[in-house]
Design a protein around this nucleic acid. Sequence first.
RNA 1: GCGCCUGUAGCUCAGUGGAUAGAGCGUCGGACUCCGGAUCCGAAUGUGGAGGUUCGAGUCCUCUCAGGCGCGCCA
Length: 558
Amino acid sequence: MSINEEIISLLKKSLLSATTKGRIPEVGLLDIQLDYPKRQEYGNISTNIAFSIAKKIRTSPYAVAQIIIESIEKTGGLISKVEIAGGGFINFWVTKERLYQVLKEIEEANESYGTSNIGQGKKVLIDFVSANPTGPLHVGHGRSADYGDILANILAFCGYKVTREYYINDIGTQMKTLGESLKIRYLQLLGQDVQLPDNGYKGEYLVEIARTLYKQKEDTCRNEEVEFFTNFAKDAILEDIRKTLIDFGVQYDSWFSEKELYDSKQVDEVIDSLKKVGFTYESEGALWLKTTAFGDEKDRVLIRQENNTSGRREHTYFAGDIAYHKNKYARGYDILINAWGTDHHGYIKRLEAAMSALGYPANNLMFLLCQLVSLRRDNQPVSMSTRAGEFVTLSELIKEVGKDVARFFFVMRKLNSHLEFDLDLAKQSSKENPVYYIQYVHARTCSILAKAVEKGLPQSLANQANLNLLKLDEELALIFKLASLPQEIINCAKCYEPHGLTAYLMELAGIFHNYYQHHRVISANKELSQARLVLVNAVRIVIRNTLTLLGVSAPQRM
RNA sequence: GCGCCUGUAGCUCAGUGGAUAGAGCGUCGGACUCCGGAUCCGAAUGUGGAGGUUCGAGUCCUCUCAGGCGCGCCA
């Protein structure tokens, strides 16, 4: 049990004892909130439980707090002091002995320190990035990729069974346009005077793909159908996307093709199901879904009006997406997470409506919207147009600032905030750059541990060292910070927000650097050195585990 | 026009309805015979505006101002 769990358990026992003795009326189930106070004089952990109880039974928070702490068990070696402050806050101080125990736990758990089981094996599908294969990933996709991957890491750490999935929109109007655009680029290479239409893909990358095609097949493709070019472009672009994501440290468990949903008739089937439940109708030559029945602003089209040029009735993207989500449910996931760009927010209602129409529970279908990213260089916003000399692709960003920096910067902000990526700061290799500041702690701890070996100090194991020697305030604060990692991770998992971990790392790094600056780890006092080496090793493990969750490397030397 | 999101320090942003609102950058001033100076210590600056709910509001509600995004039989 973690320290937080132990305190919650103490509080529950205390409340139970107080209510059975009739000192506090029965108040029903309470969600006990613990907090890490900002000020040292408020202890290690505090709770506002007395305020919530006082509100329900209309009495003073101070009186309730008084009763609670009188009923609290003070044996058990967890708490050294309990106080009431600020009119009803209950503040706890954790014993040194319990903190030393944490050092042992960290050493023993090693790579798995920070894990928990709040997920209880529930299956989660995270669908993220899923950019159309019509061009390279840009920096906005980078943020989604970073977010989705880190969220997946965190949920896995918390005991969920996680699948990372990329949904490929490999069919439909855009794919056709892509094929047409490539064909024109190819024919241009052959010297033909043909121009891209206004809606064509104008990016330089398609010219390069045309060159690749020419290298492979020379001029033998001039009479191929558009579909041939679509496939060639799609494969080349998907390969580029995959490679960029791997360079970024993001690996998917599953790549899901929209086209296969059509080929295997799953789209037709889901439309039949929707017809059967009576939520569809024909109008103006199209098939509509009555999403307004579920709170959408207007009804949405599933199958489009007959197209003049193709003479066919084509499905909308929406139709495919309904089949896709039905398929996700059918695969037995408990939680479906869609990490989308904020520009898709208008689309959420209609998809929820469709799933409700099919009878699926809406509450385990999550939409997490990722706000836009802007770049800043030389204190100026960088234009996001594809003008020459100004990068916009994720791949270029990785080349310029490095994977570690890019990943850390993308996750520093709350998902819902606009993110301004400061390239100048990102490229500084000094303390100004938070990534190096944190990685430096890891390198430093490794270096200290190596120095200890060099000096012939025996291998320091927590259960062999005399940890009682760690009694400085800085040391106890450092250990307490290490002790709070599992709870920090749980908090991130509960609200699907990983950015708290960057703040955690900054704080931990600050405490450590300060400690290091003022106290020698390895000194003439061998026993003390041993104890401090255990602490340093624990810091190393916590920094490494947290950076790993963030997809950032933990270098031993820098 | 309608809908969603965002307004917190000079800049970029944290901040589960709780205690004296924090961090990084930038600015200014300091610290090294040492286990890594890619480090450390110190200083200044405040919630867009108006009401309301509450014992308590940056956080919840209403209005207002400013910015972003969306409002296709595109995806």
